[in-house]
Design a protein around this nucleic acid. Structure first.
Lengths: 224, 224
DNA sequence: GTCTATAGCGGGATAGAC
DNA sequence: GTCTATCCCGCTATAGAC
C-alpha cells in the first residue's frame, strides 16, 4: 500500500470532482472538455480514456452525487415509525442530502429542468417509489391512528412537507436575499430552518383541537 | 388596422416565442440560433436584426415571462390585508405565475442554477424586496394581533409557505410521479393543490389551541 | 426587412507517440 | 496511462445582395 500522503491522486476521481463543479456552475452544454481537464489539472484527453464520452462523465457525476444518496434513503426509514418520527427523519435527510456536496442543489435544479434527458429519470423514479411513497404511507397511517388531521390528502401533505427543504436549497440565491444575506446562508440558519420545517409540518398536520372537528374529509377523489 | 386574421405574424414576437420554448427545454447553451429560426419558421439571421446577440434574446425571453410578472405582483397586495388574506393571495398568485406560460417553471429552474449569470439577479431582487418582504411583514403583524403563533420566525414561515407551490411546479416531473401520473399533472389536481397549500400554511400558522401555549422558541442549535 | 453565403472560431473526439 | 496534435463539425455572427 502506498503511503497515505498522495492527495486523492487518481485521475478518474479528480475528473469527476472537477466536472461536478463545472457542470453545476455552468450546465452540461456550456462546460467544455478542456475546462474539465484544466480544472482537474489533467490532460483533457484522459476523459476519453476513463469515460466513453462527455455525456457518460456527466451521468457518472449525477449518479455519484444524486443516485447514491437517493438509493441509500430507504435504509434511513426502518419499519415501525410513527408519522411524526418519519417526518423528522425525512426532513433531516433532505438537508443532509443537499449538504452532501455544495453542488447538489444546482445539479438537482438543472436535472429538474432537463427532465427529458434520460439521466434524471431513474433517480426521480427511485425518489418517488422510495422515500416519497413511504412518507405518504406514514401520514395515511397517522390519520388512521388519529394523530394527523384527516382532511388533508396524504400525497399533497407529503409534497408540502418535503417542499420546504427542497425549495430552500434549490432556490438558495433567493433565500439568501430574503434572509438578508449577501452571498450564502450561514450554516446555523440552515440548522434553524431544518428544525423550523419539522415544526411547521407537524403543526400543519396536527388534528384540529378538541371541540371543533377537522374540516370534513374530502371525498377520496382520484388524483388523475 | 389589418384584419385580425394574421396569426401573430410579427417577427420579433415569433422569435421570442420560439426561443422561449427551446431555452426552457434545452437551456441557453444547448439551443442554437438555427433551431430558433426553424421553430419560428423564420430566417435565423433575423435574430441579429431584432436583437444584438443570442444572450440579449435570452434576456428578453426571461424579462417577458419572469420579470413582467414579478414586477406586477405588488399591485396584487393592497394595503390593509390580514395575514391570512395575504397568504391566500400570494399562493394563488404563485400558481398564476407558474401557469402564465408552460415554460415558466423550467425557465425558473434554470435561472436558479445559473444565478451567477447576471440575467437572473434583478428578477430575484424584485422578488425578495417585493412580495416576499410583504408577506413576511403580514405574518409579523398577524403575530402581534394574536392570529398567528408566535414561536415561528416570520421569514422562515414565509419561506415554508411559498415553497409549496414553487416546488410543486419546479419539480413537476417528480410531482407527476409521486401523484401517479405518467406525464403531466392535470389541471384539477393543480387546483386542488393550490387550495391544499393555503390550508396547510394556515394550519401551520394557527395559534396553538387554548390552554397549552405554543412551544417555546427553539434555541438555534447547531446540527453540524 | 429578409435572405444567402461564409468567415472565423472553438467544440468533441481520435490517432498514435511515448 | 498520459500526452500531443489534429480532424471535422457546427456554432455565432457578419457582409452584403435583394
Amino acid at each position: 500500500m502506498p503511503p497515505a500522503a498522495a492527495p486523492a491522486a487518481d485521475a478518474p476521481a479528480a475528473l469527476l470532482e472537477a466536472a461536478e463543479g463545472l457542470f453545476a456552475a455552468q450546465g452540461f452544454a456550456a462546460t467544455t472538455i478542456k475546462q474539465i481537464g484544466a480544472a482537474a489539472r489533467l490532460n483533457p484527453a484522459l476523459i476519453y480514456y476513463y469515460f466513453p464520452d462527455k455525456l457518460a462523465l456527466y451521468a457518472a457525476v449525477l449518479d455519484r452525487r444524486l443516485g447514491q444518496f437517493v438509493r441509500a434513503m430507504p435504509a434511513r426509514l426502518p419499519a415501525g415509525l410513527t408519522a411524526r418520527e418519519g417526518i423528522a427523519i425525512v426532513v433531516r435527510a433532505q438537508v443532509a442530502f443537499m449538504r452532501s456536496s455544495p453542488h447538489v442543489p444546482r445539479l438537482l435544479a438543472r436535472e429538474l429542468a432537463d427532465h427529458e434527458a434520460a439521466v434524471a429519470a431513474p433517480i426521480m423514479r427511485d425518489l418517488a417509489h422510495g422515500p416519497f411513497r413511504r412518507l405518504q404511507a406514514l401520514i395515511r397511517e397517522g390519520q388512521a391512528a388519529g394523530e394527523i388531521r384527516t382532511d388533508l390528502d396524504p400525497a399533497l401533505a407529503t409534497i408540502s412537507t418535503i417542499a420546504q427543504v427542497a425549495w430552500f436549497f434549490v432556490a438558495h440565491p433567493l433565500m439568501a436575499r430574503l434572509l438578508g444575506h449577501e452571498g450564502t446562508v450561514p450554516n446555523r440558519t440552515v440548522d434553524r430552518f431544518t428544525e423550523h420545517a419539522i415544526t411547521f409540518a407537524l403543526a400543519a398536520l396536527a388534528p384540529a383541537p378538541g371541540g371543533r372537528p377537522s374540516r370534513r374529509p374530502r371525498r377520496p377523489r382520484r388524483t388523475a
